[in-house]
């Protein structure tokens, strides 16, 4: 590092863990030792299949779920043990956009009430009218026509509802937003509209995003760094372009290969590489690499991956991988 100024990351997690107790001595390891750093104005993509703990990670960071272990540092302060009352002022800075634009909006509130709600909670404005004025400005910002001000959510389509979700998240001028699969419930043409909107807003407002998704192709466009999660652990973390150009972990490779590409020649010539098996249970996982049961190179590392967890090693600047095969090189 040549620059002397070390920027404090806006958000940092150190060995963050969240276990859900599901039986007497049985725990579901939803998030298991995640380290990440996120600077203002940057986006980190968190990718993984259902059940890998990516949504839990986002909610734990926002303290909507209490973490089991590890630390969450927001703007240098350790918020891990913060109570609800201590979190209250921070809620203005950390927001979330939900996956399902249908269930995340109270069906009995009109559009403007939904958008103004957070401002009223935090008493940002003295009067209701001022909050509503700001809500209308937010509607303009996210591209919602003013005629929908008093519509009820069920009268709007998914794309417009998701814009409500975005406007609501922006209403308190946050610095950090967890986007939990914000486009996966939307059609492709609408998906592109929302992605562009999120990117524009980031540029204007210097927002930091944690973009949680199962769709690698979506994060590629919006992320600076991408973290690939498998069963609660991070298997690979790399700058976006690097990850696509040079994936190292067998799981990342499999994920990339599994995306059906809208390219006739490539899809007809490319041999369909399919990884076997399905995601194993996150309940009291066996020691070792979580991916071992599905990994085709499992025998090549001499059985180490079923005994101990591979280290998280930096293979090139900013590119970390957790796999014995790669670590050996």
């Amino acid at each position: 590092m040549d620059n002397n100024i070390v920027r404090t990351p806006l958000l940092e997690t150190v060995d963050l863990q969240k276990y859900f107790k599901i039986g007497k001595n049985s725990y579901l390891h939803a998030v298991d030792g995640i380290n990440l750093k996120l600077h203002a104005g940057e986006t980190i993509g968190v990718v993984g299949e259902s059940g890998c703990g990516k949504s839990t990670l986002g909610r734990t960071i926002l303290k909507l779920i209490e973490p089991t272990g590890g630390k969450i540092l927001y703007d240098g302060q350790d918020i891990t043990k913060y109570k609800n009352s201590q979190m209250h002022p921070l809620r203005k800075e950390m927001q979330i956009i939900f996956q399902d634009p249908y269930s995340s909006i109270d069906p009995r509130k009109s559009v403007i009430e939904v958008i103004a709600e957070y401002m009223l909670i935090h008493k940002v404005y003295k009067t209701r009218a001022e909050a509503f004025n700001r809500a209308v400005q937010l509607m303009d910002m996210v591209g919602l026509a003013r005629r929908y001000t008093n519509s009820y959510p069920h009268e709007l389509d998914g794309g417009r509802r998701q814009r409500i979700g975005v406007a609501r998240a922006l209403s308190l001028n946050p610095r950090f937003i967890v986007c939990d699969e914000p486009v996966s419930a939307l059609d492709v043409s609408i998906q592109a509209q929302i992605l562009n909107l999120l990117m524009d807003l980031q540029e204007q407002l210097d927002l930091a995003y944690m973009f949680v998704t199962h769709d690698l192709s979506v994060v590629k466009h919006i992320s600076d760094n991408i973290m690939v999660m498998y069963l609660g652990r991070c298997v690979e973390l790399a700058p976006s372009d690097e990850l696509f150009a040079n994936p190292q972990h067998p799981y990342t490779k499999a994920l990339l290969a599994a995306i059906p590409e809208p390219d006739l020649i490539r899809s007809r010539t490319k041999k369909l590489e399919v990884i076997r098996g399905e995601v194993t249970s996150p309940i009291d996982p066996k020691p070792g690499c979580r991916f071992a049961a599905r990994c085709e190179h499992c025998d090549k590392c001499g059985g180490r991956c079923t005994e101990s967890n591979p280290e998280f090693v930096e293979v090139s600047p900013g590119h970390f991988v957790s796999c014995f095969l790669v670590n050996d090189k």
């Binding site: 909507l64 209250h88 939900f98």
Partner: peptide, 22 residues
Amino acid sequence: ESDYVEAARAGGSGSMRIIMSH
């Protein structure tokens, strides 16, 4: 359990407010 209650919580709503308004 619904998402919008979680959304309200993420916005800083307390229990009473969630019960009364959602």
